[in-house]
Protein backbone atom coordinates (compact mmCIF):
# COMPACT_ATOMS: atom_id res chain seq x y z
CA UNK A 1 0.00 0.00 0.00
CA UNK A 2 2.93 2.35 0.66
CA UNK A 3 3.85 2.28 -3.01
CA UNK A 4 0.29 2.99 -4.11
CA UNK A 5 -0.10 5.90 -1.70
CA UNK A 6 3.28 7.34 -2.63
CA UNK A 7 2.39 7.37 -6.32
CA UNK A 8 -1.03 8.86 -5.50
CA UNK A 9 0.42 11.55 -3.26
CA UNK A 10 3.10 12.65 -5.68
CA UNK A 11 0.76 12.47 -8.68
CA UNK A 12 -1.58 14.75 -6.73
CA UNK A 13 1.24 17.22 -6.11
CA UNK A 14 2.11 17.16 -9.80
CA UNK A 15 -1.45 18.09 -10.71
CA UNK A 16 -1.81 20.72 -8.00
CA UNK A 17 1.37 22.49 -9.12
CA UNK A 18 -0.04 23.11 -12.58
CA UNK A 19 -1.79 26.18 -11.27
CA UNK A 20 -2.75 27.68 -14.60
CA UNK A 21 -4.27 24.42 -15.75
CA UNK A 22 -6.07 24.01 -12.45
CA UNK A 23 -7.62 27.44 -12.75
CA UNK A 24 -8.89 26.68 -16.22
CA UNK A 25 -10.21 23.31 -15.04
CA UNK A 26 -12.04 25.01 -12.22
CA UNK A 27 -13.61 27.70 -14.38
CA UNK A 28 -14.36 25.52 -17.36
CA UNK A 29 -17.52 23.85 -15.97
CA UNK A 30 -18.68 27.24 -14.71
CA UNK A 31 -18.67 28.56 -18.27
CA UNK A 32 -20.79 25.57 -19.27
CA UNK A 33 -23.17 26.22 -16.41
CA UNK A 34 -23.59 29.92 -17.09
CA UNK A 35 -24.05 29.39 -20.83
CA UNK A 36 -27.57 28.00 -20.32
CA UNK A 37 -28.51 29.37 -16.95
CA UNK A 38 -30.48 32.27 -18.38
CA UNK A 39 -32.87 30.29 -20.56
CA UNK A 40 -32.87 26.71 -19.32
CA UNK A 41 -31.88 25.97 -15.75
CA UNK A 42 -32.14 22.22 -16.17
CA UNK A 43 -29.91 22.25 -19.21
CA UNK A 44 -27.28 24.20 -17.27
CA UNK A 45 -27.07 21.28 -14.80
CA UNK A 46 -26.55 18.81 -17.66
CA UNK A 47 -23.87 21.07 -19.11
CA UNK A 48 -22.00 21.60 -15.87
CA UNK A 49 -21.75 17.85 -15.36
CA UNK A 50 -20.38 17.43 -18.87
CA UNK A 51 -17.97 20.28 -18.20
CA UNK A 52 -16.64 18.48 -15.12
CA UNK A 53 -16.22 15.34 -17.17
CA UNK A 54 -14.38 17.15 -19.93
CA UNK A 55 -12.13 19.06 -17.53
CA UNK A 56 -11.15 15.97 -15.56
CA UNK A 57 -10.62 13.86 -18.68
CA UNK A 58 -8.29 16.51 -20.03
CA UNK A 59 -6.36 16.64 -16.76
CA UNK A 60 -6.08 12.85 -16.81
CA UNK A 61 -4.93 12.87 -20.42
CA UNK A 62 -2.10 15.26 -19.65
CA UNK A 63 -1.20 13.51 -16.39
CA UNK A 64 -1.01 10.18 -18.22
CA UNK A 65 1.17 11.63 -20.99
CA UNK A 66 3.50 13.30 -18.48
CA UNK A 67 3.96 10.04 -16.59
CA UNK A 68 5.08 8.03 -19.63
CA UNK A 69 8.69 9.15 -19.25
CA UNK A 70 9.18 8.07 -15.67
CA UNK A 71 6.97 5.00 -15.45
CA UNK A 72 9.47 2.57 -17.04
CA UNK A 73 12.07 3.71 -14.50
CA UNK A 74 9.57 3.29 -11.65
CA UNK A 75 8.69 -0.16 -12.90
CA UNK A 76 12.38 -1.08 -12.75
CA UNK A 77 12.59 0.46 -9.28
CA UNK A 78 10.22 -2.06 -7.78
CA UNK A 79 6.74 -0.81 -8.64
CA UNK A 80 4.18 -3.06 -10.27
CA UNK A 81 2.08 -1.68 -13.10
CA UNK A 82 -1.04 -1.55 -10.91
CA UNK A 83 0.72 0.63 -8.32
CA UNK A 84 1.37 3.18 -11.02
CA UNK A 85 -1.99 3.39 -12.75
CA UNK A 86 -4.10 2.97 -9.62
CA UNK A 87 -2.04 5.56 -7.75
CA UNK A 88 -2.53 8.04 -10.55
CA UNK A 89 -6.23 7.23 -10.80
CA UNK A 90 -6.61 7.77 -7.08
CA UNK A 91 -5.01 11.21 -7.36
CA UNK A 92 -7.29 12.14 -10.27
CA UNK A 93 -10.38 10.93 -8.47
CA UNK A 94 -9.47 13.13 -5.50
CA UNK A 95 -9.00 16.11 -7.82
CA UNK A 96 -12.32 15.31 -9.51
CA UNK A 97 -14.21 15.20 -6.24
CA UNK A 98 -12.60 18.46 -5.13
CA UNK A 99 -13.65 19.98 -8.48
CA UNK A 100 -17.23 18.73 -8.18
CA UNK A 101 -17.99 19.87 -4.63
CA UNK A 102 -18.23 23.61 -5.41
CA UNK A 103 -20.43 22.90 -8.43
CA UNK A 104 -22.71 20.68 -6.40
CA UNK A 105 -23.02 23.48 -3.85
CA UNK A 106 -23.73 25.92 -6.69
CA UNK A 107 -26.55 23.73 -7.98
CA UNK A 108 -27.81 23.19 -4.45
CA UNK A 109 -28.05 26.94 -3.84
CA UNK A 110 -29.03 28.09 -7.33
CA UNK A 111 -31.53 25.46 -8.44
CA UNK A 112 -34.82 24.43 -6.92
CA UNK A 113 -37.15 21.56 -7.39
CA UNK A 114 -34.47 19.13 -8.55
CA UNK A 115 -33.31 15.84 -7.04
CA UNK A 116 -30.00 16.82 -5.44
CA UNK A 117 -29.03 13.27 -4.55
CA UNK A 118 -29.26 12.25 -8.19
CA UNK A 119 -27.14 15.23 -9.20
CA UNK A 120 -24.50 14.21 -6.67
CA UNK A 121 -24.63 10.73 -8.18
CA UNK A 122 -24.05 12.13 -11.70
CA UNK A 123 -21.03 14.05 -10.47
CA UNK A 124 -19.64 11.01 -8.67
CA UNK A 125 -20.05 8.80 -11.73
CA UNK A 126 -18.62 11.53 -13.94
CA UNK A 127 -15.49 11.67 -11.77
CA UNK A 128 -15.27 7.87 -11.69
CA UNK A 129 -15.50 7.73 -15.49
CA UNK A 130 -13.61 10.80 -16.62
CA UNK A 131 -10.31 9.94 -14.89
CA UNK A 132 -9.87 6.51 -16.50
CA UNK A 133 -11.23 7.89 -19.78
CA UNK A 134 -8.44 10.47 -19.97
CA UNK A 135 -5.80 7.95 -18.87
CA UNK A 136 -7.05 5.41 -21.40
CA UNK A 137 -6.82 8.04 -24.14
CA UNK A 138 -3.27 8.90 -23.11
CA UNK A 139 -2.39 5.20 -23.28
CA UNK A 140 -3.81 4.80 -26.78
CA UNK A 141 -2.83 8.22 -28.15
CA UNK A 142 0.55 9.18 -26.72
CA UNK A 143 0.49 12.67 -28.28
CA UNK A 144 -1.43 15.23 -26.25
CA UNK A 145 -2.89 17.00 -29.27
CA UNK A 146 -4.48 13.86 -30.70
CA UNK A 147 -5.94 12.94 -27.33
CA UNK A 148 -7.33 16.44 -26.84
CA UNK A 149 -9.00 16.35 -30.26
CA UNK A 150 -10.63 13.03 -29.50
CA UNK A 151 -11.90 14.44 -26.21
CA UNK A 152 -13.31 17.40 -28.06
CA UNK A 153 -15.14 15.14 -30.48
CA UNK A 154 -16.53 12.92 -27.72
CA UNK A 155 -17.86 15.78 -25.62
CA UNK A 156 -19.18 17.55 -28.71
CA UNK A 157 -21.08 14.42 -29.73
CA UNK A 158 -22.30 14.04 -26.19
CA UNK A 159 -23.92 17.45 -26.44
CA UNK A 160 -25.49 17.14 -29.87
CA UNK A 161 -26.55 13.51 -30.06
CA UNK A 162 -30.06 12.52 -29.11
CA UNK A 163 -29.78 10.48 -25.89
CA UNK A 164 -32.57 8.24 -27.11
CA UNK A 165 -30.41 7.16 -30.03
CA UNK A 166 -28.90 3.73 -29.34
CA UNK A 167 -25.49 4.91 -30.61
CA UNK A 168 -25.44 7.62 -27.94
CA UNK A 169 -25.06 4.88 -25.33
CA UNK A 170 -21.58 4.24 -26.65
CA UNK A 171 -20.51 7.65 -25.44
CA UNK A 172 -18.87 7.59 -22.00
CA UNK A 173 -21.04 10.25 -20.38
CA UNK A 174 -24.43 9.07 -21.66
CA UNK A 175 -25.42 8.21 -18.10
CA UNK A 176 -25.12 11.88 -17.23
CA UNK A 177 -27.99 12.93 -19.52
CA UNK A 178 -30.09 10.00 -18.40
CA UNK A 179 -29.78 10.57 -14.66
CA UNK A 180 -30.10 14.32 -15.17
CA UNK A 181 -33.47 13.75 -16.82
CA UNK A 182 -34.52 11.84 -13.70
CA UNK A 183 -33.16 14.58 -11.44
CA UNK A 184 -34.51 17.61 -13.31
CA UNK A 185 -37.69 16.44 -15.04
CA UNK A 186 -38.75 14.09 -12.23
CA UNK A 187 -39.20 11.15 -14.55
CA UNK A 188 -39.58 7.61 -13.26
CA UNK A 189 -36.72 5.61 -11.71
CA UNK A 190 -35.98 3.76 -14.97
CA UNK A 191 -33.87 6.70 -16.08
CA UNK A 192 -31.92 6.53 -12.85
CA UNK A 193 -31.39 2.77 -13.12
CA UNK A 194 -30.31 2.91 -16.78
CA UNK A 195 -27.95 5.78 -16.07
CA UNK A 196 -26.50 4.14 -12.97
CA UNK A 197 -25.85 0.84 -14.76
CA UNK A 198 -24.30 2.67 -17.72
CA UNK A 199 -22.06 4.80 -15.51
CA UNK A 200 -20.83 1.88 -13.42
CA UNK A 201 -20.17 -0.28 -16.47
CA UNK A 202 -18.35 2.50 -18.35
CA UNK A 203 -16.22 3.35 -15.31
CA UNK A 204 -15.35 -0.33 -14.80
CA UNK A 205 -14.56 -0.92 -18.48
CA UNK A 206 -12.39 2.19 -18.76
CA UNK A 207 -10.53 1.36 -15.53
CA UNK A 208 -9.92 -2.16 -16.84
CA UNK A 209 -8.72 -0.69 -20.14
CA UNK A 210 -6.24 1.54 -18.30
CA UNK A 211 -5.01 -1.47 -16.31
CA UNK A 212 -4.64 -3.52 -19.49
CA UNK A 213 -2.77 -0.79 -21.38
CA UNK A 214 -0.50 -0.10 -18.41
CA UNK A 215 0.16 -3.81 -17.90
CA UNK A 216 1.09 -4.30 -21.56
CA UNK A 217 3.27 -1.22 -21.80
CA UNK A 218 5.12 -1.89 -18.54
CA UNK A 219 5.31 -5.69 -18.80
CA UNK A 220 8.56 -7.47 -18.20
CA UNK A 221 9.73 -8.58 -21.62
CA UNK A 222 10.22 -12.28 -22.26
CA UNK A 223 13.90 -12.00 -23.16
CA UNK A 224 14.78 -10.64 -19.70
CA UNK A 225 15.16 -12.93 -16.75
CA UNK A 226 15.84 -11.36 -13.39
CA UNK A 227 17.36 -13.74 -10.85
CA UNK A 228 17.22 -12.72 -7.21
CA UNK A 229 20.56 -12.88 -5.41
CA UNK A 230 19.52 -11.66 -1.97
Amino acid sequence: MTKLWTVAELALWEILRRRGVLLILLLFPLAFYLSRRGDHLGQSIRFVCLGIGWALSTAALFAGSAARGIEPRLRLSGYRAHHLHLGRLLALWIVGIALSVPYFLLVRLDQHDVRYGAIALIMLLTVATAAPFGLALSAVLPRDLEGTLVLLVVVGLQMVMDPADAAARLLPFWFSREIATYAIDHTDADYLTRGLVHGVVVAAVLTALVALASGIRLRQRGHLRVVSVR
Binding site: E14, A66, G69, I70, R73, L76, S77, R225, V227, V229
Partner: peptide, 20 residues
Protein backbone atom coordinates in the same frame (compact mmCIF):
# COMPACT_ATOMS: atom_id res chain seq x y z
CA UNK B 1 19.37 -11.09 -21.00
CA UNK B 2 19.89 -12.38 -17.50
CA UNK B 3 20.20 -9.98 -14.60
CA UNK B 4 21.36 -11.36 -11.27
CA UNK B 5 20.05 -8.93 -8.66
CA UNK B 6 18.23 -5.61 -8.92
CA UNK B 7 18.43 -3.10 -11.75
CA UNK B 8 18.97 0.65 -11.76
CA UNK B 9 18.47 2.50 -15.02
CA UNK B 10 19.39 6.04 -16.01
CA UNK B 11 17.81 7.01 -19.34
CA UNK B 12 19.43 9.46 -21.72
CA UNK B 13 16.49 11.81 -21.38
CA UNK B 14 13.26 11.90 -19.41
CA UNK B 15 13.10 9.79 -16.32
CA UNK B 16 12.05 12.68 -14.08
CA UNK B 17 8.76 14.41 -13.30
CA UNK B 18 8.66 18.06 -14.34
CA UNK B 19 6.55 19.27 -11.45
CA UNK B 20 8.21 17.41 -8.57
Amino acid sequence: VRVYGSLGYCPQEGGTCDFL
